[in-house]
């Protein structure tokens, strides 16, 4: 999961302080693994260096946590690209996909498109596996089946999420 893209995405809805970003992240994505302040500072300084964010203002009292960050145009394009690129089908990618979907919803992008292109990517892998299975021996078939069932589980999750997009939208925009 890319924390940088996630924080960038969170900034898209408006400039935020560092501690705001951490709180928003924890609330929406960090259910059991809250971000450390250190992670936020290092990520933000990397993004600042790459020109994807800029400092919008500093509050009295100083300290890095008092900086207010805003996303640049380059930053918006970067988020866009990241969201549109389907993840390589592999195990345990749900958290990334989830983050993408929520961010898309937060930034009023089409979350269904993300799911559809991901499904397409998964199916592409499944076709290859199915084809290999058809030509292969029993051992090949069993190996391919294992992978296929995992991919299928992902796809089911995609279907289910797609069916619940409306509900999710109202939840995250609360």
């Amino acid at each position: 999961m890319s924390i940088g893209h996630t924080l960038l995405g969170l900034l898209e809805s408006g400039p935020r302080h560092g501690y705001d970003l951490k709180r928003a992240f924890d609330e929406k994505f960090g259910h059991d693994r809250p971000l450390h302040y250190g992670q936020v500072y290092s990520t933000m300084s990397r993004l600042l260096k790459n020109g994807l964010v800029e400092v919008d203002g500093i509050e009295a009292g100083g300290g890095p946590e008092r900086k207010r960050y805003a996303i640049t145009d380059a930053g918006v394009t970067d988020v866009e690209k990241w969201l549109a690129t389907p993840e390589k089908p592999e195990e345990y990618l749900q958290s990334t996909l989830y983050t993408k979907v929520v961010l898309a919803l937060l930034t009023h992008r089409n979350a269904a498109d993300i799911l559809d292109s991901q499904r397409s990517e998964h199916l592409r892998s499944m076709r290859i596996l199915t084809d290999r299975k058809r030509r292969g021996d029993l051992a090949d078939q069993l190996v391919c089946d294992h992978a296929l069932f995992h991919l299928e589980a992902d796809l089911r999750w995609l279907e289910l999420t797609a069916a619940r997009l409306d509900k999710l939208r109202t939840e995250v925009s609360k």
Binding site: A112, D116, S117, R119, S120, H122, L123, M126, R127, L129, T130, L148, L151, E152, L155, R156, E159, A162
Partner: peptide
């Protein structure tokens, strides 16, 4: 609606709310 069945296809078209999407 089964991915494993759809995997026998060359390509898929997703239908949602009466609209189609050729992936």
């Amino acid at each position: 609606h089964e991915a494993r069945v759809a995997a026998y296809s060359d390509r898929e078209i997703v239908v949602r709310d009466g609209k189609s999407r050729d992936m």
